[in-house]
């Protein structure tokens, strides 16, 4: 009974946090900009780097990482800081919610928002892969072709989500929530619908249905999302004690150090020990494994997932400890 009540408290905080994160105008803008960048890029790309879809794939995942980091850090940092600044954290903690439960709820809410963001952008990367130039050969013609129909559909998806958000706003519903909900639902629907057409836009029929997406992308995209979740956890820890500005700066520093973490493995012991607390970005960036038809080794994927889970757990423990005696 007590556990159920505690879980209800965690869930209430998580739900409110997710709601707040998704309906911020900046969240919608980041998701919109990232999706359009990824979707438009294959329509204007000039090189294939010797492998159809590679540039779209790499650029798409890099965009998802950069925009996602800004999204995750902002949601976690500003969300927590606002609760402290506006006193809503104090009002919540005057009730029977423990401080660790509050921190956990805040993180889970941000994690849900980050998951929604990553889900939408992952579809953008997959659709961009289909749109990219591919080698094409028939009895009469040989060369490369772009799936312009898929590209156009991808570019229009956020517009449809924006329209859904605007319609919701007119009815006094939440714009951001409807935007993200619509985009998350429309992406797989669009991918399924595109499966009935070939790259030229010709009808294939139900028997030959093929969405033409690269399923190998799922694991590296999931690992990029895992990195975003790990960084959001550390940002939550920073936000328990610092204002938004220092939190964003510290999170950016952590990310920058994360790029050097792999190189630090061969450094002296004190440096290695210090870098153990920094999430190694290279552990989550496995896009190169897809080169020339390759796949991500299951062991590497599982290791990176566990590594992310360790960072999330460690960051939440630090957050709970830092928040326990904080004056509200």
């Amino acid at each position: 009974m007590r556990l159920t009540a505690s879980l209800r408290g965690v869930f209430a905080v998580a739900r409110a946090t997710a709601l707040e994160s998704l309906q911020r105008p900046v969240s919608v803008l980041l998701a919109l900009a990232c999706f359009e960048l990824v979707a438009l890029q294959p329509l204007v790309q000039l090189h294939a780097f010797g492998e159809p879809g590679r540039l779209s794939r790499d650029a798409g995942m890099a965009s998802m990482l950069v925009f996602g980091l800004v999204f995750a850090v902002f949601c976690a940092g500003e969300g927590f800081a606002r609760e402290l600044r506006d006193g809503t954290a104090a009002a919540a903690l005057a009730g029977p919610v423990s401080r660790p439960a509050f921190v956990l709820g805040k993180y889970l809410g941000v994690a849900a928002a980050v998951a929604a963001f990553a889900w939408c952008q992952a579809w953008a990367v997959a659709l961009a892969g289909r749109t990219s130039e591919a080698f094409f050969e028939t009895a009469r013609f040989a060369g490369s072709i772009r799936d312009v129909g898929c590209g156009a559909a991808s570019v229009l998806l956020p517009a449809a989500a924006l329209a859904a958000g605007a319609a919701a706003d007119v009815r006094h519903r939440r714009f951001g929530l409807w935007f993200f909900g619509s985009l998350a639902a429309l992406c797989p629907v669009a991918a399924a619908a595109l499966g009935f057409f070939d790259r030229n836009g010709s009808w294939l029929g139900a028997a030959a249905w093929n969405p033409g997406l690269d399923a190998r992308l799922a694991v590296p995209l999931a690992l990029v999302a895992a990195l975003l979740l790990a960084l959001a956890a550390w940002t939550t820890a920073f936000a328990t004690r610092l204002q938004t500005g220092p939190v964003l700066a510290l999170s950016a520093l952590l990310l920058a150090l994360g790029f050097f973490a792999e190189a630090a493995r061969t450094a002296a012991l004190p440096v290695r020990a210090a870098f153990a607390l920094v999430p190694d970005v290279q552990s989550f960036w496995l896009a190169d494994a897809l080169r020339a038809g390759g796949t991500v080794p299951p062991g590497a994927a599982a290791g990176a997932a566990l590594y992310a889970a360790f960072h999330v757990a460690a960051a939440l423990c630090v957050a709970a400890a830092l928040f326990e005696n904080r004056d509200l």
Binding site: T4, A5, S6, R8, G9, F11, A12, V13, R15, A16, A92, G95, P96, V97
Partner: peptide, 10 residues
């Protein structure tokens, strides 16, 4: 109020 009720485990 529903949010606060969640905090109280209602």
């Amino acid at each position: 109020l529903l949010y606060a009720a969640g905090l109280f485990g209602m």
